[in-house]
Design a binder for these strands. Structure first.
Lengths: 191, 191
DNA sequence: TTCACTAACTAACAGTTGTTAGTTAAAATT
DNA sequence: AATTTTAACTAACAACTGTTAGTTAGTGAA
């Protein structure tokens, strides 16, 4: 059943995500989405159930990709520093693959309805895993002894904002970016 | 004319900023704001001109405080590292003083209308000044030689997200936070 | 050919939106 | 005491919201 070519439903989700990034979920109307696709708002409902369903499709699928990525990293048996580098790469990869979706994930999750508790659960678990890696790194002497909360906040907010920044650099090389970010986030900028 | 006690207009702006942080500008109605204050929506218009004016009041005044802070730092004659520490302190100070306003500044600026170009101008100049400090630091050998764009992105997005994080820690000491952030952002977490 | 399916359409709905007009009771000023 | 100002109110508006119902032209299968 699933085709390589984009289904109409996937197109709606893609177009909606782009509009959500520009104006936010609440400010985008079904008529906006339809107009961008060159059809009428009512026609959208041949493919999707509701506006809410579009948001859900964007956010939950992305959140689950982060969870899957973290699961793999957790079980990799690498050093703490290497795990952190893998997390950075995970964010660069997923963000560059779905810039518009990342905007909704960051800014529109509070407009989820039934799915909100599930999203919150995924996010909490991700952050717990992240903090765990940091605490382990501190315990092993791999990392400096600073509050892991502040550490995680600092790194994670940078990674969560990548979607704002990647599209501005058309010529960007993602491996370079991952490398630069690792250096800055792990070793700082002070010479 | 100006009193120490909060005017009704200031109360509207404060209440609105809190609601804007929770749901975003577009999802908050004038009736929401009024209800929170225990009055009717129409009564708000005795004190403010429009919903748009509330957003403008929140965002522009904050943006101008950042501009003023940067101007002072720029002319301080301090070393690059000390200027960066001063920027970190500026963000911690302004963010903790106005957590709700910072949310609008970050997430709702695109809903500014006439004032949008002015906001964009302030933000661009701030970022230019920031990058300038970094480039100077690299040139002088104070900072490692990594693309200043990536450096600025990394530090600035962390600082811009402080509003998300400060309120979670009731017991937080702002000087501690500034100190921890400086260490992490400037020297990294790698031992 | 006949039939069911797909994906578009028009029309309309009930509720919500920001905002205005006009009114009123209390407080402040003259 | 008379007057003006303040800050609330009710009622209403025109525009917009997400969504539904019913229709229709084109497509592929029987």
């Amino acid at each position: 059943m699933k085709n390589k070519i984009e289904s109409r439903k996937e197109e709606i989700i893609r177009v909606a995500a782009k509009l959500f990034k520009e104006k936010g979920y609440s400010a985008v109307t079904m008529r906006d989405i339809a107009k961008t696709m060159g059809i009428k708002a009512a026609s959208l409902y041949n493919h999707i159930n509701s506006k809410q369903d579009i948001l859900k499709a964007i956010i939950i699928s992305l959140a689950e990709k982060f969870t899957a990525g973290m699961l793999e990293i957790k079980g990799s048996g690498e050093s703490c520093i290497n795990k952190l580098k893998a997390i950075i790469k995970l964010h660069v990869t997923l963000s560059s693959q779905n810039i518009y979706g990342m905007a909704s994930l960051n800014n529109d999750w509070m407009h989820l309805e039934e799915q909100m508790p599930y999203y919150i659960k995924l996010r909490s678990e991700y952050e717990d895993d992240f903090k765990n890696i940091l605490e382990h790194g501190i315990g092993e002497g791999e990392l400096i002894n600073v509050k892991p909360d502040v550490m995680m906040f600092s790194i994670l907010t940078t990674l969560r904002s990548l979607y704002l920044w990647i599209p501005k650099k058309e010529d960007i090389d993602l491996n370079d970016l991952t490398e630069n970010l690792s250096q800055i986030l792990l070793d700082g900028i002070n010479k």
